[in-house]
């Protein structure tokens, strides 16, 4: 079947909720991902990214709400070979060489790709004869990515695909992911690298405390957060008192320099000059995605927590 011609969502989650004991890991998440979309789930550790992915993969059942994959249940989609994934762990435990491992995974899928082709694609071809146990963290991650791709599934669910890879390798992985996305595959990946989300995804879903706090392109998220930063030279002032200025959400000190993240930079500037006339070298600039991320995950996260209590 050509899934792209079928008029269903790639992934559709409605009211997804999952608790582990008293901890609510995922809380009423609604999310629709179109076939062919590349979506980053961006959030700090413990924000519920992995639990959401587990539910998409059918590894755990939601307490409330439902999730479907290409219109089917996650379990049915997995059985049909429409889905493949890269979990945070998951090598076969015993002695296998890289090529044997990827061949083993390929054998489970009905329409798998050539093993050597996929190893070349992920830059793991020179590792083919190595034992999986003897790989470095970054090498292991490339091999795991190869195993996720070899099944030729329509939906790829990748949990922190570049964790443990060096900067250069990370860029190569992004290129691989973009190449796969260009073939029309649907990709969901979890990351806490903003740069990665920005570089690979069409769409960023920002998650904090088990909720979606923002959803859109990188530019949209930056503007939604409305964060601007102010840099200035200002010695002998407590960071605490800077933080309490109107319009400031966070303040940091680096020697004599201070950096203020602001929800309202105009008011913050006025307040800064008023309260500390000795301030010098003031620069105001657009916020980075990183600042937007902090702003959205802490502020909305806190609000989300208050609401749920």
């Amino acid at each position: 079947m050509n899934l792209l011609e079928v008029d269903v969502a790639g992934v559709s989650a409605v009211g997804l909720t999952k608790s582990y004991g008293p901890v609510r890991a995922v809380s009423g998440v609604d999310l629709t991902i179109a076939p062919g979309e590349t979506v980053a789930l961006l959030g700090p550790n413990g924000s519920g990214k992995s639990t959401m992915m587990d539910m998409v993969l059918g590894l755990c059942r939601p307490d409330r709400g439902s999730v479907s994959v290409f219109g089917a249940s996650p379990a049915a989609a997995v059985r049909s070979g429409w889905v493949s994934g890269m979990l945070q762990a998951g090598f076969p435990p015993d002695l296998l060489k890289v090529r044997e491992y990827v061949t083993l995974v390929a054998s489970y899928y009905p329409r798998s790709l050539g093993v050597d082709e996929v190893l070349r694609m992920t830059g793991a071809d020179h590792l083919a004869e190595r034992w999986t146990k003897k790989l470095s963290g970054g090498q292991a991650q490339r091999v795991r990515l190869a195993a996720a791709l070899v099944g030729n599934a329509d939906l790829l669910v990748l949990d922190e695909p570049t964790a443990g890879i060096d900067v250069e390798g990370r860029r190569e992985c992004w290129q691989v992911m973009r190449g796969v996305a260009a073939q029309g595959k649907t990709i969901i990946f979890a990351t806490h690298y903003l740069e990665e989300a920005d570089a690979v995804a069409d769409r960023i879903v920002l998650i904090a405390h088990g909720r979606i706090v923002a959803d859109g392109s990188a530019t949209e998220i930056k503007s939604r957060a409305g964060v601007r930063s102010i840099r200035a030279t200002l010695s002998h002032v407590e960071v605490e008192s800077l933080r309490s200025l109107t319009g400031v959400v966070a303040a940091e000190r680096h020697g004599d320099a201070v950096v203020l993240s602001c929800s309202d930079a105009d008011r913050a500037l006025a307040a800064l000059f008023m309260k500390f006339p000795e301030v010098r070298n003031v620069e105001a600039g657009g916020g980075s995605l990183e600042e937007a991320f902090l702003e959205l995950t802490t502020k909305n996260g806190r609000r989300a927590k208050e609401v749920s209590q």
Partner: peptide, 21 residues
């Protein structure tokens, strides 16, 4: 008994997201 090792390494979990029944 290999199952115990598979479980400890997360391999059982990985198998559950493949079409292998």
């Amino acid at each position: 008994g290999h199952i115990a090792i598979d479980r400890a390494y997360g391999w059982t979990r990985h198998l559950r997201i493949t079409p292998l029944r």
